[in-house]
Amino acid sequence: MAKGKVGKTVGSLGDYLKEQRTSARLSLRQLADQAGVSNPYLSQIERGLRKPSAEVLQQIAKALRISAEQLYIRAGILSPDDGVGGSVELAILGDTGLTERQKQSLLDVYASFLALNAVDTEATPQAAEAPNNAPTTTETDSDAVTDEG
């Protein structure tokens, strides 16, 4: 396995973390202590040599007093194009009852479902339209009035 940067997203994450750390006037050692990670590990993250877990990112975000969601996006865990704000992903990442491996598996499955649905929608655009036997607005309105109570 070749040594070097893990990936562009991780590299930009490391640059961003270093920028945030220096803005907060924290040394590498101070941030590592506050985040509960080792000094060398944090250094490797900042240099783009290691990809931290969502849990470690959350601890770092808390220590820096910044948004964990922003770190997840920079690490490539969340996509900024999610539109809904990544609420499903954030719920998975924030669940303390799951292991890191389980969280990653759920995120992978969720992403694959979204990709599959996007392909299905592009292949059959009429699927997004109402079917011919859908109730009209007058039927729905009258049902809503009679069903109250």
Rank of each mutant, 00 (worst) to 15 (best):
L64E: 06
T137I: 08
G86A: 06
G36Q: 11
E100K: 12
G85N: 03
D95I: 00
Q70M: 12
E122W: 03
V145M: 11
S79A: 13
S142M: 12
A144T: 07
Q104L: 10
Q34T: 00
S142N: 10
V145P: 03
I66S: 10
G4E: 07
K51I: 04
A144M: 08
I77P: 06
A54D: 04
R101G: 05
G36K: 09
S112L: 06
D33N: 07
V119I: 14
S87N: 07
L71F: 01
Q34W: 01
Y110Q: 12
G36Y: 08
L78W: 10
L93H: 07
E139F: 10
D147R: 15
Q102H: 12
G97C: 01
L107K: 05
G11E: 15
R25E: 14
G36F: 10
A123C: 02
T137Q: 13
A134I: 01
V10C: 08
D82P: 06
E89K: 09
G83F: 08
L17D: 07
M1A: 14
Q126C: 05
N117H: 14
D15Q: 12
T96M: 01
E148R: 11
R101H: 03
G149K: 12
Q30T: 13
L57W: 02
T96S: 05
G14C: 02
L116M: 14
K18T: 09
T124V: 13
K18S: 08
I73G: 14
A63C: 12
I92G: 03
I60F: 08
P131N: 06
V88I: 14
I73R: 15
P80E: 02
L106T: 09
K51D: 13
L93D: 02
Q44C: 02
Y16I: 00
K3W: 04
R65C: 11
K8Y: 11
I73Q: 15
D143V: 07
Y72H: 15
T138D: 03
S105Y: 02
G14N: 03
S12P: 00
L28K: 12
E100P: 11
E19G: 15
G83R: 09
P52A: 03
A128V: 13
K62C: 02
N132W: 03
A54L: 07
T99E: 13
R101K: 08
I73W: 10
P125G: 07
T22N: 07
N117P: 00
V10M: 08
Q34D: 08
G7N: 15
